[in-house]
């Protein structure tokens, strides 16, 4: 099935950015609010992308309602990045036509789209999503529903270890970052990377990895302290570096 007609739920920054990406690729795309959904003609829609914030009970309920109203063939996708896609798929009542899509920030300049496979997502659904990503001119990878997916998990582990190294006093922040840039060809030092991502986001990712995968992901106490102090990185003007 070729995806032609896309409905994005959630009139927020991410929702609109993804909408722009779709429209630029020549797809028919509409960005709507959940409230406006009742008036929508859903018959032509091939794909609904739920761009609402991270999972809540409310979101689960809304996915259930949406799932019930969609045409049989329509794929329902969610932007949720945390572990739990399979649970959402189950409440949508179309677990085989349910998938996760993770657009690597910053959308709409995303280069990588991670297609997330729930326990019951069908091959047909995956194939349709691969085709969609190709038509957007982006790079797709397919990953199982797992905490942090691929990119976030690998980089979070490195950032956490960099914070441990700093906490133990083995090197200064500048030295740690320059070592990884000039000694390992990293595009950015791990501490700079953490500041850009947001230290609260990093802590959440590590907590989930620690809970679901194992204690090797235990967040460094220094990271907890920074978050407690409200030093969340670039967005608050202070993290491992000062941005004021």
């Amino acid at each position: 099935m070729a995806i032609q007609n896309v409905l994005i739920l959630g009139e927020n920054t991410v929702g609109r950015a993804i909408g722009d990406m779709m429209s630029q690729a020549g797809l028919s795309c509409e960005v709507a609010n959940r409230a406006a959904l009742a008036d929508q003609d859903l018959a032509p829609v091939d794909l609904v992308i739920d761009a609402l914030p991270e999972p809540t009970a409310e979101k689960t309920l809304s996915l259930e309602q949406i799932g019930r109203r969609l045409p049989e063939r329509t794929i329902l996708a969610t932007l949720a990045t945390s572990f739990g896609l399979t649970g959402l798929a189950s409440s949508s009542r179309r677990p085989d036509r349910f998938v996760g899509l993770h657009f690597q920030p910053p959308a709409p300049d995303t280069r990588l789209i991670q297609i997330v496979r729930g326990l019951d997502t069908s091959e047909t659904t995956i194939a349709a999503c691969r085709e969609l990503v190709a038509s957007l001119g982006r790079t797709a990878i397919v990953v199982k529903d797992s905490p942090g997916l691929v990119y976030q998990r690998v980089t979070a582990a490195v950032m956490n270890e960099a914070i441990y190294v700093l906490w133990y006093g083995l090197a200064s922040r500048e030295e740690i970052d320059s070592m990884m840039k000039y000694g390992a060809n990293f595009p950015m030092g791990p501490l700079e990377m953490a500041d850009s991502l947001g230290l609260d986001v990093l802590l959440d990712t590590l907590e989930e990895l620690c809970r679901v995968i194992g204690p090797e992901h235990r967040p460094c106490p220094l990271l907890r302290q920074m978050v407690s102090a409200g030093h969340l990185g670039k967005k608050t003007g202070k993290g491992f570096y000062d941005y004021s």
């Binding site: 690597q104 790079t139 990953v143 691929v150 990119y151 980089t155 595009p187 950015m188």
Partner: peptide
């Protein structure tokens, strides 16, 4: 691919 396309490694 995730690391290369996703983060410029």
């Amino acid at each position: 691919t995730a690391l290369k396309a996703g983060g410029g490694f």
